[in-house]
Amino acid sequence: MISRYESIIITTLCKLLIPVIQLYGLYVIMHGHSSPGGGFQGGVILGASFILLVISHGLDEVKKRMSEKLNTIFCSFGLLIYAGLGVLALIFGGNYLDYGHLPIPVTIAEARYLGILGIEIGVGITVMAVMISIFLDISSVGEQE
């Protein structure tokens, strides 16, 4: 275990900073297809906010909010969104990940817009869960669960 240094400045500052970081991560994911950023970068920023929570508040605080089981579910759920959108386009007569054929009642251009947004969200969820999982495994060296 990494022992943490008790300091009211660090605790308060991180409590204020973490929601802003998570909001910025969501912004990066949602605007990934029209500006720099995307699912991977936004997922890494979301994961970094949880790592900051581990550093400032200790491992148990994160285990309360994001247990290992929930983390594993997130990890495979994002992959399911990615592969599911691809296979859905395959079922409705397009190629794999051909968003123009997705069964949503909009024009083809808007369907492509929404399809890439879904892919970014899936990638973001998976990357966030994997980053948290790697850091928890390193910092606890398999002591818990």
Partner: peptide, 14 residues
């Protein structure tokens, strides 16, 4: 962006 978030952020912490 990727370098700043992965290389300098997550990489250093890991």
């Amino acid at each position: 962006f990727t370098e700043a978030s992965v290389g300098a952020g997550i990489g250093t912490v890991l």
